[in-house]
Design a binder for these strands. Structure first.
Lengths: 186, 186
DNA sequence: GTCTATAATACGATAGAC
DNA sequence: GTCTATCGTATTATAGAC
């Protein structure tokens, strides 16, 4: 199978990939279907053959992440609400972010919350995090504990993509982020 | 001076106020000048009399906040790089957020970073925070310390507007946020 | 200082040929 | 599966009357 043949068959996958890149870089609203199409050397109409709407591209990207996140929630539920579980969840969540699309998707989510606000994908993501919080924060958790937990996840997010935090390598940045997250969820 | 007379003279101020509300609620891009005008019972063209461009409204809002932030940076610079200074800076920063426009502006900034990315106001804000970091983080600061410092500010931001963190009152929420921030910058 | 009217442009989405 | 062409709608911004 030649390179050209391969390219021909997975236009849909390429659209997803390019869209994710652009969404992460410049946000959902600012990324037009024309721009996505141009990067692939096709037309807007061709994109519409593979996805019924622009939002469907987004949904398709989020669903992949949701699958991993749901697994994590289920895993957490089956465990005691201890400090050790919290630490394990954070470690596993960071592994999830290290996946192929994780970092870009989460950057897009972290920096473009406003754009996601009215979209189903946005509410679904929020729901998942709320579920995680319910499982992990003590029943009578104080506001402070909720803050700490929420910030722990933000720490991991920043560790996954934030370039303007000085670190010698991406690995060191992720390690530092995990340390802070673990301390917050302590 | 009647209420009607007062209203007549400060249309510019009203535009700023309504724009800030809408920017915070739904983001910069999604807020149109038509929407701003409609809320005030005037037309789009009338808005253009008071502001040359949409971006100028944004700039005008940010400049107010920058003034307070610059004061804080100057104050911090004149102090020793100690844990006590860091704590004082966080406390003063929270006071800044408690100002009339602070919380809305910061919500808009925190949730709509993607929209601000290519705007001068966005880079200026980033610059200010970088300056604050330079003053407060030790010269040989580790990546972990940078994370902690950055998260301390995010904690205060969430404390200023985030409604989905359970707390009995806004005051309690802010107090909890400050506690976490102080712990992070310890 | 506010209006009506409109220019110029971009967007998401569709129709129909090939 | 991809194309050209287009529809309908929104946007920022401007011109000129009042």
């Amino acid at each position: 199978m030649s390179v050209a043949d391969e390219r021909r068959t997975d236009t849909r996958a390429q659209i997803r990939q390019v869209a994710l890149e652009l969404f992460a870089e410049q946000g959902y609203d600012k990324t037009s279907l024309r721009e996505i199409a141009e990067r692939l050397g096709i037309t807007k109409a061709a994109v519409y053959y593979h996805f019924k709407t622009k939002e469907e591209i987004l949904t398709s990207l989020f669903n992949e992440f949701f699958a991993g996140l749901d697994e994590l929630v289920a895993w957490a539920r089956a465990r005691p609400r201890t400090a050790e579980t919290r630490a394990d969840v954070l470690r596993r969540y960071q592994d999830l972010l290290a996946g192929p699309t994780g970092a870009q998707l989460i950057r897009f989510m972290q920096e473009g919350q406003a754009a996601l606000k009215d979209l189903p994908a946005g509410s679904e993501m929020k729901e998942r995090f709320a579920r995680l919080a319910t499982v992990l924060v003590p029943e009578d958790g104080t506001a402070e504990q909720h803050f700490r937990f929420r910030l722990a996840f933000i720490a991991l997010h920043l560790g996954a993509f934030s370039t303007d935090i000085p670190a010698d390598s991406p690995e060191e940045r992720r390690a530092a982020a995990l340390n802070v997250a673990l301390d917050l969820a302590r």
